[in-house]
Amino acid sequence: MLKIFELIGRYFILMGKVFSRPEKMSIYLRRVVFEIEALGVNSIGLTAIISVFIGAAITLQMSISLESPFIPQYLIGYATRETMTLEFSSTVVALILAGKVGSNIASEIGTMRITEQIDALEIMGINSASYLILPKIIATVLFFPFLTLLSMMIGIIGGYGIAFFTGIMVPADYVEGLLYSFVLWEVIYSLIKIAVFAFIITSISGFCGYYAKGNSLEVGRASTRAVVASSITIMIFNLILTQLLLT
């Protein structure tokens, strides 16, 4: 228990260093652009592929579950939209990104730690925590919401595609369901969630990598710790944010 408090304390101390005044803003902005490409743009493919299949699968499952003359068909489109908007495109996409981006950050920074690259930055007088972690946090908090929007759109298109190509339902009913009782706040809620999750993934992974020590085995362990800790924290904050924003 004491160790958990110690870890949380060290995390907040590191965040204090991360959010201290950058040495030169222009260099940090250049790094943010670089990280947007490395962590965000390079995740578009994975997000799109998973979203299209999940959207299609949800539509298929709903059409099987709701097969009844008493249940209107448009509810399938409605259920697909709600599932994608409320949970999949924010929370599940965040869990996927925790695996992809989180492990990438932890192993990158962890390797820099054990090969003394972080020490080299410190010797130059650079705030290594801020220089390495802050651009990643800004990049993901800014870009992950776009991934969520993309995931919503592609997931819904995936559902339409399966309806269109398999004939399990009339595509017009699916579209009617998509528009049925649409609440913009649900999209905004999802975008707020992914922004918070982006911060969680990047800061926790950065923390795990930054304090890695030893050899390459430890970098692997730091990477695993980053994914596990990020995923658990995402689930906890998913509950908290849902309680705060939707009820």
């Binding site: 090969t115 690259q117 080299a120 007088g125």
Partner: peptide, 24 residues
């Protein structure tokens, strides 16, 4: 000068040497 060099892997030779000039 570190034992293993400790050059920043993601940067070229030019960028590695230039980094302190950029920041300070």
């Amino acid at each position: 000068i570190f034992q293993g060099g400790a050059l920043i892997d993601a940067s070229t030779v030019y960028e590695n040497v230039r980094l302190p000039l950029d920041l300070f």
